[in-house]
Amino acid sequence: MTIFRWQNCHADVATAMHGISVQSFLDDVIVPSIQVLEEKMHILSRSDEPAAAFALSDAGDVLRETKMAFGLSIQSIWERQLRGYLRGCAAALRPHEGLAAQAEKGNWRRLRELFLELRGIGLEAFPSFSELDKLHLLGNACRHGDGPSATELARHCPELWPDYLLAPANANQVTATAPPVELMDIPLDRLRLFCAAIVTFWDDAEYIYNESIERKHPSLEARLAQERTQRSWWPAAASDEVVR
């Protein structure tokens, strides 16, 4: 198999901490915050105070809104990272074509087109794309509320509406009406999956960057030789990706 390579630029180097930043946000901010709220709900659920039931309901609403806010934050971090990367690639590789400005203002579809144009491989080729595409829908739903993105998100991730989509009489019957965003309850494990997708994407991008270095140090050659035997994904040398 011919190893895929792209033209390296400084933008590749600038992404070195992207995955680490996202993982730190998950481990140091998201998880502890959710655990604090869950512990508060646990204490309230065991309380004999008359007002505890009302406080428990309010705490549940706060927890649900907090997880939605974190979902939006994760998507915003990812989008800023991707836009910055594409701006850097455009400035270095095709500086006089206005692509950097498009990277700043383009929608999700245009960003995917730009990635293919600038890197020679589509975002869709990356194993993490499916989760990143869902993350885009989640960000839109959390930011704008009910609408096309929320409807599509419900089709792909019905588990985000556990109390709405499953009819009490038949747990296998899904309601036909699109669920309201205000009832969305994002599991912590789903937030973990979104963060893992971002980390995996930047790890894969780093792998391509390392393979694309023309004069490799022997230590890098040795590391890549081992990594090739361990990786579950190798990008093809030629991409026929079609942007959806």
Rank of each mutant, 00 (worst) to 15 (best):
V22E: 11
F25Q: 07
L26D: 02
D27M: 01
I34D: 15
V36T: 13
L37W: 07
H42K: 07
I43S: 11
L44A: 12
D48M: 06
S57Y: 08
D58V: 12
A59K: 05
D61E: 12
F70D: 07
L72V: 03
S73D: 09
S73A: 15
I74D: 10
I77K: 11
R80F: 11
R83V: 13
G84I: 02
Y85R: 08
C89D: 03
A90V: 09
A91H: 08
P95L: 05
L99M: 08
R112G: 15
R112D: 14
F115K: 01
L118A: 03
R119L: 10
D133M: 06
G139L: 06
A141Q: 02
G145K: 06
G147A: 04
G147Q: 06
A154T: 03
E159W: 08
E159C: 00
D163V: 00
L166E: 09
P168E: 06
A169E: 14
A169V: 04
A171S: 12
Q173D: 12
A176V: 13
A178R: 02
L183S: 09
L188W: 00
C195I: 05
I198P: 01
F201A: 01
F201N: 02
W202V: 06
D203S: 14
Y207R: 15
S219N: 07
E221C: 04
L224D: 10
A225M: 05
T229N: 06
Q230C: 07
S232N: 08
D240C: 02
E241G: 13
